[in-house]
Amino acid sequence: MMKNKYKILFPLFLETFKLSAFTIGGGYVIVPLMKKKFVEKLNWISEEEMLDFVSMAQSCPGAMAVNASLFVGYKMAGFLGQIAALLGTILPPLLILGVISLAYTAFAENPVVKAVLLGMSAGVAAVMLDVVVTMVGKFVKNKDVISLILAACAFTAVAFFDVNIIFVLAVACILGLIISSRKKRCGK
């Protein structure tokens, strides 16, 4: 067990490094990346756990990509895992910005850089759409009406009414508690 724990540290570092390097256009982009790599390919976490980590990562201060990586690191190998995940997440910006800061105006105004970044944003849009369709599709498939309604409300509140995310999450916690205690009582 101990040996396995050490063995996982390097892959953990490497995967969080990639995760961070491809976080383009905001923290939520890690969701499709985590789902594909950590859930489907490596089987490190279940999809439920991933959603739990994302929910909790949002509730904590700081960058979401860092927080989510820290949760995955802790799950895989405790504190050492967190250190590996943290290094993996902060190293790409450090390296990239280290190079760019030497000539950042040249970088920011370079037409090729601009064109490639725009192209990448279009790709990110497709990737995000895909992950949302899959997740909502799962609720529909399981006929999970309550989850569908909760997701729709959270979406509407944030996308159309600009409600604070922390407020939405707090309300969701309370509703979750009420719903699950109701279910239990009905079950008995």
Binding site: V54, M56, I146, L148, L150, A151, A154, V168, V171
Partner: peptide
Amino acid sequence: GLRPASVGLI
């Protein structure tokens, strides 16, 4: 409660 809300936020 948090899981579906997170899907909404995503």
